[in-house]
Nucleic acid binder design. Structure first.
Length: 199
DNA sequence: CCATGGATTGTCT
DNA sequence: GACAATCCATGGG
């Protein structure tokens, strides 16, 4: 069976995730997000890869304290922290724990399920496996930009839906960082063909 | 398949 | 002034 093929009819969505879902340790929330569905204006898919960043972690943007860029990370949980990467791409995080904890989960890859035509248009890309297989790719596919920084995760245009059952999850070291490179805080859906990189 | 380098700009030193 | 939580095209094995 061709696993890169995407079904024409989107799967039924689970119940909406409330803001309180994020008011826990980032190390609990990150693996719990695998299998959940992220939509922006109805376009998106199933989260298959994330990374956890904690304020005590030298690789986290919040490690050295609040700045104009990372201010949302120091706010309450359940909000989107969006930043520009390498001057070119946008990346989206979900703020966790409690106000001032400054921890967040970076969303790194989705399996596209909703609004695939719109994603292909935005990405100029036909291959379903390349639409959302990276943090910069998925923001482009979903139309996420700096305008979404600070928006709540449980109100339009953003929606999150719970997974039906707990999937098999794999963990590994994070990608593209130079500090605390050994921490195994990257989580993925086992066997997924839509990861940014194999575990 | 893997390795390398350019693009491009906000942010912090 | 350096560098970054990346992506893509290109070139070699």
């Amino acid at each position: 069976m061709d696993q890169s093929r995407i079904s024409a009819t989107p799967p039924v969505l689970g119940k909406p995730l409330k803001r309180a879902f994020f008011a826990r340790s980032v190390h609990e929330v990150a693996p719990d997000l695998i299998g959940a569905t992220l939509l922006v204006d109805g376009v998106g898919g199933v989260i298959v890869e994330v990374e956890a960043y904690h304020h005590t972690d030298p690789a986290a943007h919040s490690f050295r304290g609040p700045t104009p860029r990372n201010l949302v990370m120091f706010g309450p949980p359940g909000f989107a922290y969006v930043y520009r990467s390498y001057g070119i791409h946008w990346c989206v995080n979900f703020v966790c724990e409690k106000e001032g904890s400054a921890s967040a989960v970076l969303i790194r890859a989705l399996e596209p399920t909703h609004g695939i035509a719109a994603m292909r248009r935005r990405r100029g890309q036909q291959d379903a496996r390349a639409l959302c297989s990276g943090p910069g790719k998925l923001t482009e596919a979903l139309g996420i930009t700096g305008k979404h920084n600070g928006l709540p995760l449980d109100a339009p245009p953003i929606a999150l839906h719970a997974r039906a059952t707990k999937p098999d999850i794999v963990a590994g070291v994070r990608i593209g960082i130079t500090k605390a490179v050994e921490l195994p805080w990257r989580y993925g859906l086992k066997g997924s063909k839509f990861l940014s990189k194999a575990f």
